[in-house]
């Protein structure tokens, strides 16, 4: 097991970066789908959410 560079963190540096990048990619995918994707079905489902969050809409 690699020595952790962040003593207060239970993850090794590699695991932490892997978890972080995975979270960023997954999060960006979900936010894009809910807020920005140019699909009528997604737009109509998320319509009020898009307006309420101030996503560019219409």
């Amino acid at each position: 097991m690699a020595v952790s560079h962040v003593s207060s963190n239970s993850l090794s540096l590699n695991d932490r970066l892997f978890a972080g990048i995975t979270a960023l990619l997954l999060g960006a995918f979900l936010v894009f789908g809910a807020g920005l994707a140019n699909s009528s079905v997604l737009h109509d489902t998320a319509h009020d959410t898009r307006h309420a969050y101030g996503f560019p809409c219409h």
């Binding site: 993850l11 932490r16 970066l17 978890a19 972080g20 990048i21 995975t22 979270a23 960023l24 990619l25 997954l26 999060g27 960006a28 995918f29 979900l30 936010v31 894009f32 789908g33 809910a34 807020g35 998320a46 959410t49 969050y53």
Partner: peptide, 15 residues
């Protein structure tokens, strides 16, 4: 959107 923003925030924190 909540799950997405949470993952983005957690991602920034982890990276």
């Amino acid at each position: 959107a909540g799950a997405g923003f949470a993952l983005l925030l957690a991602g920034v924190s982890l990276v």
